[in-house]
């Protein structure tokens, strides 16, 4: 039976709306692609929180960097604390293949240091200023967020949420190849 054009028009409209909803259920609205992936990492200089001295990100060019943003009040940051410390000991201290840096945001030196001590963090830790200069430059939505910066100083990947051992291993292998094409972010 051949239906009228009105029937097919209404059916198409309903189909389009259902398809839109179906697509919406497959997408995490909290995951917003970062425009910073594939671009040079914003440079900054910070004082070490858990030691003496300062660090300028651009001085680290030649070695891939794992730049982790965290806070003492962040629950997910507790989950990844041991993983980051492990990565520091294995890939930074033992193999000199990766620099691990942690920048605490919206925090106080006392609370950040207490957190670092509690979770045994010994890698370079710093504190973003009250204005959130570094956090805003990296377009943070929350913590933890981790940027993998290749040896050329380019952001290769942004992780929203806690990192995993597998992610760090994979990114380290990928960043070893300078010609690796930039990837989009994924959340956990």
């Amino acid at each position: 039976m051949i239906r009228s054009w009105k029937f097919w028009g209404v059916l198409s409209a309903i189909g389009a709306v259902v398809a839109l909803f179906a697509y919406g259920f497959t997408v995490d609205p909290k995951l917003v692609p970062s425009p910073l992936v594939g671009k040079p990492a914003a440079d900054f200089t910070v004082q070490q929180l858990n030691g003496e001295g300062a660090l300028t990100l651009s001085d680290l060019q030649g070695t891939p960097v794992l730049l982790n943003f965290w806070a003492s009040w962040c629950v997910a940051c507790r989950d990844e604390a041991a993983i980051l410390q492990e990565a520091h000991l294995l890939y930074d201290v033992a193999q000199n293949r990766l620099r691990v840096i942690g920048v605490a945001i919206q925090d106080t030196p006392e609370k950040a240091l207490a957190f670092a001590e509690r979770f045994g963090k010994t890698y370079f830790l710093a504190l973003d200023d009250e204005a959130g200069t570094i956090g805003l430059d990296y377009g943070l939505y929350g913590v933890p967020e981790t940027f993998f910066i290749d040896a050329g100083g380019r952001i290769q990947y942004k992780q929203v949420g806690a990192v995993t051992r597998e992610l760090i291993r994979t990114m380290l292998d990928e960043m070893a190849d300078e010609m690796a094409s930039p990837k989009q972010e994924k959340g956990s």
Binding site: Q106, G132, G135, L136, Y141, G142
Partner: peptide, 10 residues
């Protein structure tokens, strides 16, 4: 929120 206050300041 903290981020909003920082954005406002910026």
């Amino acid at each position: 929120a903290g981020f909003s206050r920082q954005i406002t300041g910026k």
